[in-house]
Structures are given as structure tokens and as C-alpha cells.
């Protein structure tokens, strides 16, 4: 695992690895606004995939299509061998427990305390754990992972933006997902806090060996956290490759990303 993070790989090397998530020919439009025009991607087990794109390029739409929050107009999404568009509600809920989703604005339930926030995913999914574990232990463990065990009785509004993001991450982790989808994990945070979050993400990757998809337009984040990246331009997977390859590309559309 550590090896795959440290050394660079080409597509060929990865192919023998297990594909855990696959998207084929994804189309989605809102009225006349065609956001996705045939997007394809594969996520291999244990890797961190960065998807970069401009604001409004359909990154969030795509990630929501992955977990069934949005229904694509056309295309297929396969997660761990299951086509999520064909699943019933109960099966979909079971599958979703294997997928962590960190929302752009943390999306903590602001009428609940941090403890209740973390307990919320457990309400329906306690059967995933050994019977000797209780919710309290799981909550504390998840909070310790993000270093915020002492905030358990606070309300989300009493936390800073960075802390909120970390609590949200703890909530994402509490079900011990196999895949984590990060939607702009560093957006709205100052560079230092963003860095903390990125380090946290790496730690989690190491500790639990999850696969992750990181959606961002933050170049620093993409460089540090990603094994591989896909550029999402004009609604398609414009170019895939490693950060270094892409950052050296002469294509003007790609160059625009790394100019910052």
C-alpha cells in the first residue's frame, strides 16, 4: 500500500489490480446545459484518484451520480460489481454504507450535537459491526482519528470551519467505508487548515486502506494526495495520468489548471 503511494505507476501496471468502481459513458444535462457528455473512469482498489475540473464542470454532479443522489440521463455506474442504477432502495442503502461521502460544506446536521451527528449513520447500520461494540465507542474512535475527541458534546455551530470538516470526515469514516468520495475537501478553508485536512486524508488512507476519489480544483491538494488524476474538461475525461505528467503537458486547456 505504501509502495503504491510512493512510486509512480502507469495505466498498464494498474490493470491487473481489482477495479472497484467503474463509470461508463455518463451523460447528464440540466435543460440545455449539458454537464456530462460521456464520462468514463475506473477506480482501482487502494488507490487515490483525483478528478480535477473547473467550477461548474460537473465534478459534483458526477460524484452524486456515483452514489445515486442524482440519476444520470445515460451511462452506467458499477461499484464493487453492482450497477447502482439498477439497485432497489434497500440494496442501495447497504451499498452506500461501503461508500463514505465527504460533502463540500461539511454538511453537518446543525440541529444535532457532534455525537448525534456521528451516531446518525449508525442508526441504520449497526449490524455492520460486532455486537460487542456500542455506538459510544465507535463515535469516540472516529473522533480520535480526526483528533477532536473533546468536541463530542458541542454543536456544529460552535466549531470552526476546519473542525467542522474534520468532524464531517469522522462521520464519513464511522461506517469504515471501502471507498471514500471527497467533494472538494479543502474548499473554503485557509491553506494551513487545508493542509491539515490533506494530511488527515493520507493518514486515513494508510490506516484503513480505503480507495478514494478526490474531487478538487486545488492543485496543492491534487499533488499531495493523488496517485493518479483525471482532468474533467467539457464533460468528458479529457486526460488521465499522473500529476507530474499532466503538469508538464503543453496542451493549453491542461496548462490553464496548473497556472495558479
Amino acid at each position: 500500500m505504501t509502495e503504491s503511494q510512493k512510486t509512480y505507476h502507469s495505466e498498464e501496471v494498474k490493470t491487473d489490480k481489482q477495479v472497484i468502481l467503474e463509470i461508463n459513458d455518463l451523460h447528464k444535462s440540466f435543460g440545455d446545459n449539458h454537464v456530462l457528455n460521456g464520462f468514463n473512469m475506473k477506480l482501482f482498489k487502494g488507490e487515490s484518484l483525483v478528478i480535477m475540473g473547473k467550477s461548474g464542470s460537473g465534478k459534483s454532479v458526477m460524484i452524486k451520480c456515483m452514489v445515486g443522489l442524482m440519476t444520470p440521463d445515460k451511462g452506467r455506474v458499477n461499484i464493487m460489481g453492482k450497477s447502482i442504477l439498477d439497485l432497489g432502495q434497500a440494496e442501495l442503502d447497504q451499498l452506500r454504507a461501503d461508500i463514505g461521502f465527504l460533502f463540500q460544506g461539511s454538511a453537518l446536521y446543525d440541529s444535532m450535537t457532534v455525537r448525534e451527528n456521528l451516531e446518525f449513520p449508525l442508526r441504520r447500520h449497526m449490524d455492520r459491526f460486532d455486537s460487542d461494540l456500542n455506538t459510544e465507542e465507535l463515535v469516540i474512535e472516529a473522533l480520535e482519528n480526526v483528533g477532536l475527541a473533546d468536541t463530542v458534546d458541542l454543536m456544529p455551530s460552535e466549531l470552526s470551519g476546519g473542525m467542522q470538516r474534520r468532524v464531517a470526515l469522522a462521520r464519513t469514516l464511522i461506517l469504515r467505508p471501502k471507498i471514500i468520495l471527497y467533494d472538494e475537501p479543502t474548499s473554503g478553508l485557509d491553506p494551513i487548515t487545508a493542509k491539515e485536512i490533506i494530511i488527515l486524508m493520507q493518514n486515513i488512507q494508510e490506516k484503513y486502506g480505503t480507495s478514494s476519489i478526490i474531487i478538487t480544483h486545488d492543485v496543492d491538494c491534487a499533488r499531495v494526495v493523488g496517485d493518479r488524476m483525471i482532468l474533467l474538461i467539457d464533460g468528458i475525461n479529457y486526460k488521465a495520468g499522473h500529476f507530474k505528467e499532466l503538469s508538464l503537458s503543453e496542451d493549453p486547456k491542461i496548462k490553464a489548471f496548473f497556472k495558479q
Partner: peptide, 19 residues
Amino acid sequence: ELGSMRVTEQIDAMEVSGT
């Protein structure tokens, strides 16, 4: 309340956490 929950994606968060 529901409007702000929708805007801050809390409703989506609930949906993906199986509720």
C-alpha cells in the same frame, strides 16, 4: 430549515448514510 439543509447538502448526507 429544510431549505438550508438542502443547500448545505445535509439532506444528501442523510441519504447517503442510509436514512
